[in-house]
Amino acid sequence: MAETLLEVKDLKTEFKRGKKDWITAVNGVSFQVRAGEIVGLVGESGCGKSVTSLSVMRLHSKHNTRITGEVTFEGKHLLELKEPEMQEIRGNEISMIFQEPMSALDPIMRIEDQLTEAISLHNQGLSKSEVHARCVRALKLVGIPEPEMTLRNYPHELSGGMCQRVMIAMAMSCEPKLLIADEPTTALDVTIQAQILALMEQIRNEHNTGILLITHDLGVVAETCSRVIVMYAGNIVEEAPVKELFRNPHHPYTKGLIESVPRLGRRVRRLPSIPGSVPDLSAMPSGCRFAPRCAYARPECSARLPELVEVGPDHKCACPFYANVRKEA
């Protein structure tokens, strides 16, 4: 098994609301990402997947956020690092790409300047021409046909797919060991989406980069990930290798998610959906947070929050009654 790059233990992220009121967006999640592995982090909007990734990078505002737990990256405890030490890791050893490529690039800065900023920040002592050469190489790596021209462009002169390629090029320009991709394909159309995913796989294969892919799209997960983590309302509810998860989902929520994806060639009268919606962060149900929406819920589900337990090889689930779910499935 490959070395563990990122180890998150019991991560809890709270946001300040009002004077003394804190709301919990991520409620103690633990997971790992290994080198050369693409891990999918899935869940509905508001389940805490983006908050988790931003907490790992420590990109939340210090003034209204409280992050506890442990984040270990190659033996370094990220939550305990000083801000300048963290800056050396960001963009250098852990990079991030975001959902809206058009707005994630500075609109009034040329692409070259934005790339240069990242490269020269983490590689001091490179000459101007060396930095330029690395910019060109970074764009070539992501399959941009005319790098010299693109470097002179402003973001508004590029398409969304091109912007996302530039974002990936920027993220990869310092050859990070871990890439966090927060919904990288959500804002792109399907053909571009496939290209971007292929590009991320290619980067993983060539550089042995660990990738944490955050998405709400199970299709994307099935296509690219080797392992999947399912989050619901700030908790991890299930974690399994991708094939196992799709073939043999244990948690009722995972099952519901998979069933609600339409499939070609399968006739259904009405697409099954999960009733209700994600609970509000300030009004979390007691016990299992999925219980109010769960078809298999029992009275004892509301008593206490179920723990994530091993249910098979590499397969963890946070539902003590998963056996019933499987039987009926």
Partner: peptide, 11 residues
């Protein structure tokens, strides 16, 4: 978003 990107670069 681009400010978040700038921070994520390590600036």
């Amino acid at each position: 978003d681009y400010v978040r990107t700038a921070r994520a670069k390590g600036l």
